[in-house]
Write a protein that binds this DNA or RNA. Structure first.
Length: 477
RNA sequence: CGGGCUGUAGCGCAGGGGCUAGCGCGCUCGGUUCGGGACCGAGAGGUCGGCGGUUCAAAUCCGCCCAGCCCGACCA
């Protein structure tokens, strides 16, 4: 079969690529590392965008748009920022047939251009807080790319906020981390761990970076969103000051936070199976597909029955209808399963006689027969049920593959075997972190909230010193 | 950016200096089918990844480049 999906057991990476291509989510472009997001993939992103954007608005943020091109000198203003991004910048050197006086960088992120503008817009504490988000594309010249997970150009949102105090900026950082957690769990049905990144893993230019981390089906961690407390780093680099109520002059405090089209990759790897994409109902491009099953002699009647049902469903759901007589029902079942549609409605002569329809759920394959009049209600209930059961299943999987490990040999063995998330006492030193990475390929994904307390009285792996943190180790994407 | 594998019709592949480049699936048209990837008949579809070289002759041999996948070093 030409359209076979490589089973996960055979090759997890091939499986992932097969799903992306065959569920028509994206395709390769002629330019290395770039991809075309196809309508079904883009629909997933649009539904994500809508939900996240609503959450931003509900927390007082407004959208704006800053330009793609940034003067090269801007990137160089903040020392860590330059160092972090220099190797992955795309630079425009020519325009209008002439060499530019100053090269322009294609934004890898927009802190610098945004803070250059904030300098103009902020004078007084009355101008604060400034809570701006933008939806944009960015470009990072990655060495090794993977569809959705790491592409040269990707779509994301980046929030950039300015505050009068460090406390406020910190609160904002954590508030947005929590927004991401809620989005991941409520919409993507993807359980995530939240916590602080170590210095080795934090964003170039941040004082502190927090992230949400999800476990994929191959037990590797995927960083799915980040929120940074920037301190006064960019305010100082761009000299953004404000006058306080008391009349003194102070640098502004900042946060920035983002999620990207990488979330589409996260969604795929969290739920899908060997038959194709499994999309959580709240984000699925199509939520319910109606497939009529007819013979030539009853075609007209069945199509009328199915079409009427489809139209009722379309009033409430993102619904599609597949009456094509070129393919058999069985073929359509497989096809729509590959595309990840959560609920399939089958209607044939037998259903017509009994005034029923058959509902099949994508996640388990289970079928049930329901009264045709109650079909929309039943579909609604089933979508809810699938949404929560996907979350429960993903969470159970993560828990089964999460272990608390005190002993370094055991940690090594853990990552030599199936791996997963290992929660281990850590002495807080970059050296031991690097050694673990060197010897196991696992890195510290996050330091969860309250981890310092849990580490009290314990002995750190590797060094044997008193532990300062309980760290979550995992192999990461 | 290093190591490995790959690139021939939309997809999966065969062919490996010589005459008109094949097969399966898909696609188009006509007909029969239809409750888990149906069938018959007729058709359309190829700069053999690109550029250059060797040769009377290159999909085939050689060089360079491009792209994809895997494994490493760097990253959302």
């Amino acid at each position: 079969m030409a359209e076979r999906i490589t089973p996960r057991s055979e090759s997890y990476s091939d499986w992932y690529v097969d799903i992306v291509l065959q569920a028509k989510l994206a395709d390769y472009s002629p330019v290395k590392g770039c991809m075309v997001i196809r309508p079904r993939g883009y629909a997933l992103w649009e539904h994500m965008q809508r939900a996240i954007d609503d959450m931003f608005k509900a927390t007082g943020h407004v959208n704006a748009y800053f330009p793609l091109l940034i003067p090269e000198s801007f990137i160089q203003r903040e020392a860590d920022h330059v160092e972090g991004f220099a190797p992955e910048l795309a630079v425009v050197t020519h325009g209008g047939g002439e060499q530019l006086e100053e090269p322009l960088v294609v934004r890898p992120t927009s802190e610098t251009i945004i803070w250059s503008m904030y300098k103009k817009w902020i004078q007084s504490y009355r101008d604060l807080p400034l809570l701006i988000n933008q939806w944009a594309n960015v470009m990072r010249w990655e060495k090794r790319t993977r569809l959705f997970l790491r592409t040269t150009e990707f779509l994301w949102q980046e929030g950039h906020t300015a505050h009068a105090t460090a406390e406020e900026a910190r609160e904002e950082t954590l508030r947005m981390l929590e927004v991401y957690r809620r989005f991941a769990e409520d919409y993507m049905a993807m359980p995530v761990l939240t916590g602080l990144k170590t210095d080795a893993e934090k964003f170039a230019g941040a004082v502190e970076t927090y992230s949400i981390e999800a476990m994929m089906q191959d037990r590797r961690a995927l960083q799915s969103g980040t929120s940074h407390f920037l301190g006064q780093n960019f305010a100082k680099a761009f000299d953004v000051t404000f006058q306080t109520a008391e009349g003194s002059l102070d640098h502004v405090w900042a946060s920035s936070w983002g999620v990207s089209t990488r979330l589409v990759g996260a969604l795929i790897m969290t739920h899908s199976d060997d038959k194709g994409l499994v999309a959580p109902p709240r984000l699925a491009p199509t939520q319910v597909v109606t497939i009529p099953i007819f013979k030539n002699k009853n075609k007209t009647e069945v199509l009328a029955y199915a079409d009427k049902l489809h139209r009722r469903l379309a009033e409430r759901f993102r619904a599609e209808y597949d009456p094509d007589d070129a393919n058999s029902p069985g073929w359509k079942f497989s096809e729509w399963e590959m595309l990840g549609v959560p609920v399939r409605v089958e209607v044939g002569p037998r259903d017509m006689e009994n005034n029923t329809v058959v509902l099949a759920r994508r996640d388990t394959g289970e079928k049930q027969s329901v009264d045709v009049e109650e079909a929309p209600e039943a579909v609604a209930a089933l979508l809810e049920e699938i949404q929560s059961s996907l979350f429960a299943r993903a969470k159970a999987f993560r828990e089964e593959n999460t272990r608390e490990i005190d002993d370094y040999d055991e940690l090594k063995a853990f990552f030599e075997a199936d791996g997963g998330f290992a929660i281990a006492p850590w002495d807080g030193s970059p050296e031991t972190e690097a050694q673990v990475k060197e010897e196991t390929k696992a890195t510290i994904r996050v330091l969860p909230e309250g981890n310092e307390k849990q580490a009290e009285g314990r002995t750190a792996i590797v060094s044997g010193k008193p532990a300062r943190h309980m760290a979550v180790f995992a192999k990461a994407y």
